[in-house]
Design a protein around this nucleic acid. Structure first.
Length: 426
RNA sequence: GGGGGCAUGCUAGAGCGGUCAAAUAGGGCAGACUGUAAAUCUGUUGGCUAUGCCUACGGUGGUUCGAAUCCAUCUGCCCCCA
């Protein structure tokens, strides 16, 4: 079997490493424990987090043991890295709630025990499952004097301010609070704790975290005299330069409540041509040979590759059933044929309302295809409003029961946004 | 502790006291072209019971026939000196 390091490298996951050769050997010869930190500022991860998640999944498949930590403790401080302003601080409860949501999503990709969050894990020591931890568990009980004495002494301020994130803040003479300045120590301390507790020897993270991760590597060496490693992922942007995972409606979340499987699927279908093969390598488990074949498709044929990308990515995030539904709905909506009712956003209205007629603006606004009546008005005026695939441009149009087809109305705003209306049964 | 500056729409960023729902750019939306892609072109982009009305330019008061534009004060952010 290929060394998992090679697999990751081939798929583009690796940007910087402490020592590629040593890491490859380590991964090839031993079962190791590795960790990645996640940001608990929201209750859901979005597609931007998929790179680390997929990397973790590859490693776990190769027999290594993952630890996912959420920075409950560090988030209470705010990470200054590449931020021009401080992050908002969150309460402990908020972080813990968010953590639960995040864990549920990670479990789709990884075999993770959920004991970690409640901090009682005896059974999992020998098991294959990874852990999910909150660094608040060890950071909150830290004693300041002890921390300064045991950890602080290993850090040189001269070196710390070399770090890009800090330097930027200093150069611009934007404020950098002492609180934020400590961030690196805390993150390094995480690595040390995980090494001591679980024998963790590899940390992965976004390339913007390189400095912080290295601080941890150094700390372990100084305190324990052991060599541990770090790998960073390239920061993904789309071909058009935008941040990964942003669309009109905001971020593309992994949570089905926030981004429906259908929307999720559509996100991948709509990616830029130039991103397709890269994304296949990152976000699916397809063999590289297959990915190369798909990546070579040109022009219209590339849609096949996008479909596979969308299907595989949706399957991983939401399961096969949902992926099938999303695919069917997409085919129906864009490939002709009957629209799949199940996968389309749907709402029910009372039949009396239709009998008396509903102004078209009101209808589009009500189902959420327009954020206000004025927006609905513009939509209609500009020719973006469709009912049952027929365009209506008159703003004084009143929708009545006569437009029903099979007891339903299919509203469409623009080319891609659909909403189905059915008659409420009572 | 002392001195100075800034706060405008999704973002950035203009804005002589009237003609400002507020230039311009980006973003968004819609249309054309297409392959549910990119690029390009066009329109649009506070709300509404809609050729008019209401709400908006950090908060509150004031000057004025009239304020985003002037004054006072409060809050927030930033800079310089210590």
């Amino acid at each position: 079997m290929d060394n998992v390091f090679e697999v990751l490298n081939e798929r583009g996951f690796i940007k910087q490493t402490t020592n590629a050769e040593q890491i490859a050997r380590l991964l090839g010869e031993e079962q190791i424990t590795y960790y990645v930190g996640f940001d608990p500022t929201a209750s859901s991860l979005h597609v931007g987090s998929l790179v680390p998640i997929m990397a973790m999944a590859h490693l776990q498949r190769a027999g290594h043991k993952p630890i996912a930590i959420i920075g409950g403790g560090t988030t209470m401080i705010g990470d200054p890295t590449d931020k021009t302003e401080m992050r908002p601080m969150l309460s402990l409860e908020q972080i813990s709630t968010n953590g639960k949501g995040i864990l549920a999503q990670l479990q789709r990709y990884l075999n993770l025990s959920d004991d970690g969050i409640s901090n009682n894990e005896k059974s999992q020591i020998a098991s294959k499952a990874g852990r999910f931890l909150n660094n608040a568990d060890w950071l909150l009980s830290v004693n300041y004097i002890e921390f300064l004495r045991d950890i602080g002494k290993h850090f040189r301020v001269n070196e710390m301010i070399q770090a890009k994130g800090y330097q930027q803040r200093l150069d611009r003479e934007l404020g950098l609070s002492f609180l934020e300045f400590n961030y690196q120590l805390l993150q390094a301390y995480d690595y040390l704790c995980l090494f001591q507790e679980y024998g963790c020897r590899l940390q992965l993270g976004g390339d913007d975290q390189w400095g912080n991760i290295l601080a941890g590597v150094d700390l372990v060496r100084r305190v324990e005299g052991e060599r541990v490693h770090a790998v960073t992922f390239p920061l993904l942007t789309t071909a058009s330069g935008a941040k990964m995972g942003k669309t009109a409606g905001g971020a593309v979340w992994l949570d089905a409540e926030r981004t429906s499987p259908y929307e999720f699927y559509q996100y991948w279908i709509n990616v830029d041509d130039r991103d397709v093969s890269r994304f296949l390598a990152y976000f699916t488990f397809l063999p590289m040979g297959e990915i190369q074949r798909l990546g070579n498709l040109q022009d219209e044929a590339i849609r096949e590759a996008k479909e596979i990308l969308a299907y595989e990515a949706t399957k991983l995030a939401h399961g096969k059933t949902e992926a099938d539904k999303a695919q069917a709905a997409s085919h129906a909506a864009f490939g002709g044929g009957n629209l799949d009712e199940a996968a389309m956003p749907t709402s029910a209205i009372a039949s009396e309302r239709l009998d008396s007629g509903i102004p078209i603006m009101e209808l589009f606004h009500e189902v959420g295809l327009a954020n206000s009546r004025s927006e609905a008005r513009r939509l209609v005026q500009q020719g973006g409003a469709y009912i049952n695939e027929k365009q209506y441009r008159a703003i004084d149009m009143v929708v009545g029961a006569d437009l029903l087809e099979e007891n339903a109305l299919l509203l469409r705003a623009g080319k891609k946004r659909y909403h189905r209306i059915i008659i409420k049964k009572d």
